[in-house]
Design a protein around this nucleic acid. Sequence first.
DNA 1: CTCTGTCCCTTTGTCCGACAAAGCTAGAGC
DNA 2: GCTCTAGCTTTGTCGGACAAAGGGACAGAG
Lengths: 259, 259
Amino acid sequence: MEFDLPVAPLFRPIDVAPAYQKVADAIEREIVNGRIKPGDPIGTEHDLVRQFGVNRSTIREGIRVLEEGGLIRRDSSRRLHACLPRYSKLASRLSRALVLHEVTFRELYEASMTLEVASIEGAVERATEENIAELAGNLARSEAVVGDAAMLAECDAEFHVLVAKASQNRVLQLAREPAAQLFYPTTEMIVTGVAEGGPRLVAAHRHLIDAIRRRDREAGVLWTRRHLQDWRRGFEKIASLDRSVEHMYMEHAQAARRR
Amino acid sequence: MEFDLPVAPLFRPIDVAPAYQKVADAIEREIVNGRIKPGDPIGTEHDLVRQFGVNRSTIREGIRVLEEGGLIRRDSSRRLHACLPRYSKLASRLSRALVLHEVTFRELYEASMTLEVASIEGAVERATEENIAELAGNLARSEAVVGDAAMLAECDAEFHVLVAKASQNRVLQLAREPAAQLFYPTTEMIVTGVAEGGPRLVAAHRHLIDAIRRRDREAGVLWTRRHLQDWRRGFEKIASLDRSVEHMYMEHAQAARRR
DNA sequence: CTCTGTCCCTTTGTCCGACAAAGCTAGAGC
DNA sequence: GCTCTAGCTTTGTCGGACAAAGGGACAGAG
């Protein structure tokens, strides 16, 4: 599309990617197409130097690219191995992007309404006993910390991760994560600011688990909606929905990014 | 959460992040909190060497991290400047992750049903004249290439990006992108394999634009559903919905990743 | 025998210095 | 005023170097 050639081109544009990029691409290819499986060790830097025939600095730049992309990690002993990118890490990149694009809480709210409703529908339909047990465990912890806004907000975030997990739909799990990460910091503020916030939040969770147990889709959707509307009402007491996420996010970004 | 300390810890874990990471974090912080605005130039590598007081190799490793994260880019002259992470680039990272997690087309289908319906609802409600013009332009191009499966698939992908854009909800735009990127390669196969595929696809687009124009939410949702169900029926003629995305994706991954 | 401290080798993180290629800049020449 | 070239700048890559930390083998203490 870049330049329309009037005749069939004789030559393909030659590949001028820098060496570190080629190193990264080569390793990525091996991981993506399965020749290197998650968990498999990649050689040491020196091994890669020998294999690719480039300088160690070049190898290291390539490694940084893959590390940031979540495809490889260093274990405790700092040895390299392939790994499955973790949703929460990838999502935090997206959250950051959303912040930079100055999305508003209205957009966040609308999208989350859709995504969380879809999650609960999946969970109602397909949650396993184990999923339900995890949710119940989370609920118990929430009840124990209902007075502590920070802890409760953390539990709330985890609860919704668990619901999404119970939906058995990983695409949904991933899709909801960026928005959810941006929600999280505000939940704490709301629970702090609104007297009835904590108990209502826990009550909603209880109803949601109940709906999943009874495979009652209507109830699940209803309580998810209410839960989010509660959030919205609480939020609007502090700020406008049309406010950009930027300010509120900043205070919490650093802490969150340290996985 | 990593290790529960029984008493209040006396010491914070000391910060042992490597220097290149600190460089990346420092620059990232400046960008995220707005002191460096998208488009602003970052200094040359040599400048950064002076400012951070570390070696150029170290600086370069830090730069790779930020580049991969989409926070900085090099323009034509390869000078560094801050930039807004682009959705499609971030999403391709997510798509890759989904592939590695071996998600099935069923998950993809279910999630997309939710996300595309939400997009059209937003579009019906808030599409501007400009959005509609873009969609109409896309439709015209689709009609022109209805016989060419590859081109038509490309138009289809773009059409849905435009619908999401018309929803004015960037969170949704971002959330749908990973799944959409994985859909794209299959559309071509389906249009090739199913005789009526192309015309039906274009017809659906026409109805969707019409629904947006008339602000007819019901029609929008209905045709989005039909459109996706068409995809599903077509797909099931080639393969099972429970098949993992992995195989089909591989052939198209490289081409797509070269932006 | 298990545990512990030590020594050595490997690996990583960082630094230094160097050079070719490509971009940019400014002055020479018209 | 315009073009062209020479020189400076910047990037991508290279080679080599070294300190710090990890891991393993091995000897000695309990």
